[in-house]
Nucleic acid binder design. Structure first.
Length: 923
RNA sequence: GAGGAAGUGGCGGAAUUGGCAGACGCGCAUGACUUAGGAUCAUGUCUCUUUGAGGUGAGGGUUCGAAUCCCUCCUUCCUCACCA
């Protein structure tokens, strides 16, 4: 028997044993309740990051717990393997994406295995294999047939640096979300998915237990707004200009119109004398990047087209301007401008000397509101004025039909045929084609200019391997003739699918990764779907998490789940609602941030000048090495820019300028040192290679063992929040597992055992079970482990006192190891085996919580005076209200406060869920 | 500008959701064992003017009772952003 816990000696062994014995194979078993636990699949970048461990190992612990509770658990793993980094590696390092990707997968599989997770590797799916992307292509075809996929022309995001278009969701602040390179707007013909058709259904989160923040983000992203459309006509030519507004009640206040620079009509309506100015403006707007156009507080610019429009509600003639604050991608790309009641229009009107006409008289104002009195638009409630027959209608702060004025105007617009009620969305259709090589081919052809799908029996269209990666920026498929030239008349689509399409259905492929007659096996789907718990990062809120919901709804509507629904009925299960959403419960983990770094402690000597020390000598030392009577500045370097240090001198910040020829002494680094070698305090921030604060999980596993790393990650953070890395804290979980090892390997105690102490341990055990159950249920892994540590402390103390006999020790250990198994699977298994118990601990049932065993016999009655605890009295658990009040009032503490006077009230708060009862005495 | 989340010891974080604030752990302190201690064990560790009193970013409010609910600020992080 080893008496020291050496995880490195046992972990590999058990991982191999679990594999061999197929411990984690999950098979359909209709006699057992199922649980599909899913954690977001990694991109095979080549190295598993500590963030992967943080996301996956707690998810694994929870899946293991569900399994021990009697569920048939599916917990699969795979790789989201298409994407740009592979292609970039191909260009810069001359390695084929296929080779690069699979080498990385090999490596990451090993790293994933080292976690000791219960992944069922037989179900692994890799999105870049033909077996997988055959079905991505197949889905694309079905979408095309159903009109969900279409080819269309639109203003799209073009990344010059990546030489491809990007979806709206992949553009942040006008920059590519991955590389931060600027993205330009460009009119292009591309493939789209009609996600907008599902906007309303995607807004319905009723069936989902998802974080509120994700639901809000998706809701905002979809951006549903209610209002009306109305058609204005140009004075000359009568060209219709359709506008969308959420404020039809202000239609009478429109004093001009504004078109987006990209609007079709700009060219046609501009008068000859305004043409030069308008063309110059449109040109300039096209040159400006999205970023420039979005700069906050930018002066509202625009030019007059020379043309006028007729307002349909009052036949008034108003000028038509072109302004880049109107976005072609939102609404109709044209607005009616109501400066009195819209801040942007107001600013524009003031900048270009246009009329501001009040049509809503503010509620709380007696005098009529006038243009001259306004310094900002008024968008509050009030009565409609200057609006003909609508005058007097009450406009509230409510939106859409809930606002009486809006509702009345919409009715009138519809009755008179001047406009109609309209709902608008911010959401755009999903642009899914990419001008890149390393993605799933789009199974389409162009025959004599006409678009036709590749026949099903020719799927998958395989990516050719013999392509040349030359840094032309263009996809190698575009100059690979055998690929794109099918014959003289027929050309193949060379764009590939957005990788988000591949990851929109991977949870289905896990069900049957080898199935070659369908994307997934209907019987498997009938049993396992939907995913019961999905874990991963919140950064996918409006991308993957929205796409996969959309994808699932389309599959349902086009009948892809019909066979699975039939199979469910065959088992007597109701398929209603089962295929509406991909994942029922979603929880996001936070992010592990880089650790805080302390700055060097320095002693700086020199001369003071202008409030700063001009240092001739800077020495890195220890705070206790400050010589008595030291004259200079000493403290931690809080910040450094070039040769200026900000030194934190016990809370006081001192500026130190290091003179060019100053002597710098760093004892740890021999030889001559430079200013740049001085370390300054580093703020907590994201881990990144450039900051040099990344944590390598492989090294941690080698040093502490996988179980310790797992437990550290679960114990030292609020999982849903994340936080800064601090390796010092790893000693906590390490010590806990050491102690468990010691208690277990010491062998049964020779003590006879004290029934009372043994009963107390049993009671604490059951209290612990309750807390662990709640912790795992709520993804509060830290409290679940804290409670186990507490229990271990109590058990160890009782053992040291010689109060636990052999059989109680054995029974307690049996339960302890089961409770430990989800968290530290290797250690629990090793001790279980050493005690000679049957393989495997992971196949044991979870200890059942017994409320009777957990119950205390006596509790502390807390005596509170005016809500403040002042004393406790030991009483029976089931103490009655009256008795508790009596005891409290009679207590020394209460008497002291009452000073002979009667108490005003004495409120009894019964002890619930293990908390002590209280009496609050009001004096 | 809009929306969201959060602010608790020296640190990571608890608090059964309105009922003993600071569980558990790190760190630190004192002691024991030791040639040694960055091992192990024991004890202690919110603050103060300590028979008591105060304390959860600041200020107000509701309540018998507030870290938790409401109002007004301040700070940090995230998301969206000229959205008509």
């Amino acid at each position: 028997m080893n008496h020291i816990y050496q995880p490195q000696k046992i972990e590999k062994k058990w991982q191999a044993r679990w594999d061999e014995s197929q411990l984690y194979r999950s098979r359909v078993d209709w006699s057992k309740p199922k649980h599909y636990a899913l954690t977001m699949l990694p991109y095979p970048s080549g190295d598993l990051h500590i963030g992967h461990w943080f996301a996956m190992t707690p998810s694994d612990a929870r899946a293991r717990w569900m399994r021990m509770k009697g569920y048939n658990v599916l917990f699969p793993m795979g790789f989201d393997a298409f994407g740009l980094p592979a292609e970039q590696a191909a260009i810069s390092r001359n390695i084929h994406p296929w080779k690069w990707t699979f080498a990385n997968i090999e490596r990451m599989r090993e790293q994933l295995r080292s976690m000791g997770a219960m992944f069922d590797w037989e179900r692994e799916a890799i999105s870049c294999t033909p077996e997988y992307y055959k079905w991505s292509e197949w889905f694309f075809k079905r979408f095309y047939e159903q009109g969900v996929a279409y080819r269309g022309s639109a203003l799209v995001n073009w990344s010059e640096s990546l030489q491809t278009v990007l979806a709206n969701e992949q553009v942040i602040d006008g920059k590519d979300e991955r590389t931060g390179q600027p993205v330009a707007q460009k009119m292009m013909e591309q493939w789209f998915f009609r996600i907008t058709k599902y906007a309303d259904e995607l807004l319905d989160f009723a069936p989902l237990d998802w974080p509120e923040s994700i639901k809000i983000m998706q809701t905002n992203w979809i951006g549903r707004s209610e209002g009306a459309r109305a058609t204005f006509r140009t004075e000359i030519g009568g060209h219709p200009i359709e506008i969308y507004t959420t404020r039809p009640d202000t239609l009478w206040g429109a004093t001009f119109m504004a078109l987006a620079p990209e609007h079709d009509l700009v060219n046609r309506i501009t008068t000859d004398e305004r043409r030069a100015a308008v063309e110059a403006y449109v040109e300039a707007a096209a040159q400006a990047t999205e970023v420039e156009r979005m700069v906050e507080d930018r002066e509202k610019t625009g030019v007059f087209t020379g043309a006028y429009a007729i307002n349909p509600v009052n036949d008034e003639r108003i000028p038509i301007w072109v302004a880049d604050y109107v976005m072609i991608t939102y609404g109709t790309g044209a607005i009616m401008a109501v400066p009195a009641h819209d801040q942007r229009d107001f600013e524009f009107a003031r900048a270009h000397d246009l009329e501001v006409r009040v049509v809503i008289q503010p509620e709380d104002m007696d005098e009529p509101l006038t243009e001259a009195a306004m310094s900002a638009a008024y968008d509050g409630p009030g009565a409609m004025v200057n609006s003909d027959a609508m005058d007097g209608s009450q406009s509230t702060s409510a939106k859409g039909r809930k606002n009486p004025a809006i509702s009345r105007v919409i009715d009138w617009l519809e009755a008179t045929g001047k406009g109609q009620e309209s709902v608008n969305y911010r959401l755009r259709d999903w642009l899914i084609s990419r001008q890149r090589y390393w993605g799933s081919p789009i199974p389409m052809l162009r025959a004599d200019g006409e678009i036709v799908p590749v026949p099903d029996d020719e799927l998958p269209v395989e990516l050719p391997e013999d392509v040349d990666f030359v840094p032309t920026g263009r996809s190698p498929l575009t100059y690979h003739e055998p690929f794109f030239k099918v014959d003289e008349r027929v050309r193949r689509e060379t764009d590939t699918l957005d990788t988000f399409m591949c990851s929109s259905w991977y949870q289905l492929r896990y069900l049957s990764p080898d199935c070659d007659s369908a994307p997934f096996d209907a019987d498997e789907a009938a049993y396992w779907l939907p995913v019961d718990v999905y874990t991963g990062g919140a950064e996918h809120a409006v991308m993957h998490l929205l796409y996969t919901r959309f994808f699932t709804k389309v599959l349902r509507d086009i009948g892809v789940f019909d066979d699975a629904a039939e199979a469910m009925r065959g088992q007597g299960r109701d398929p209603a609602g089962v295929f509406d959403e991909p994942m029922t419960v979603l929880r996001n983990q936070g992010q592990v941030l880089g650790g805080e770094r302390q700055g060097d402690f320095v002693l700086c000597s020199g001369t003071m000048a202008g409030g700063r020390l001009l240092a001739e000598r800077v020495e890195v030392a220890d705070w206790n090495q400050v010589p008595a009577g030291f004259e200079g500045v000493f403290g931690e370097i809080a910040h450094r820019t070039e040769n200026i240090l900000r030194v934190d001198m016990a809370g006081l910040t001192q500026l130190v300028e290091i003179l060019p020829d100053a002597e710098i002494v760093i004892p740890d680094i021999p030889g001559e040192n430079s200013v740049n070698q001085l370390r300054h305090h580093l703020e907590i921030q994201r881990m990144s290679k450039s900051k040099g604060n990344v944590v390598n999980p492989d090294e941690l596993v080698a040093k502490y063992g996988a179980d310790v790393v797992r437990c550290y990650l679960m114990f030292n953070f609020d999982w849903q929040k994340g936080g800064p890395w601090n390796e010092n804290n790893i000693k906590g979980p390490q010590g806990w597992l050491d102690d468990i090892w010691e208690i277990a390997t010491a062998g049964p105690p020779r003590a006879p055992g004290d029934p009372e102490a043994e009963r107390d341990i049993e009671r604490k055990l059951h209290q612990t079970i309750a807390v662990i159950n709640r912790g795992l249920e709520d993804f509060s892994f830290n409290t679940a482990i804290a409670e186990q540590m507490k229990f271990k402390n109590a058990l160890r103390a009782a053992l040291r006192e010689g109060k636990i006999g052999a059989s109680a020790w054995r029974e307690t250990l049996d339960a302890t190891l089961r409770l430990l198994a989800p968290f530290a699977p290797h250690l629990a298994e090793e001790i279980w085996a050493r005690l000679g118990w049957d393989y495997s601990v992971h196949q044991q049932p979870w200890p059942e919580y017994d409320a009777d065993k957990a119950r205390e016999e006596t509790v502390d009655l807390v005596v509170m005076i005016n809500g403040r605890p002042r004393a406790t009295i030991a009483v029976a658990v089931d103490i009655a209200r009256e008795r508790a009040q009596e005891l409290a009032l009679a207590s020394e503490a209460a008497q002291r406060y009452l000073a002979g006077k009667p108490a005003k009230r004495a409120i009894f708060i019964p002890g619930r869920n293990g908390s002590d009862p209280k009496v609050n005495v009001v004096v």
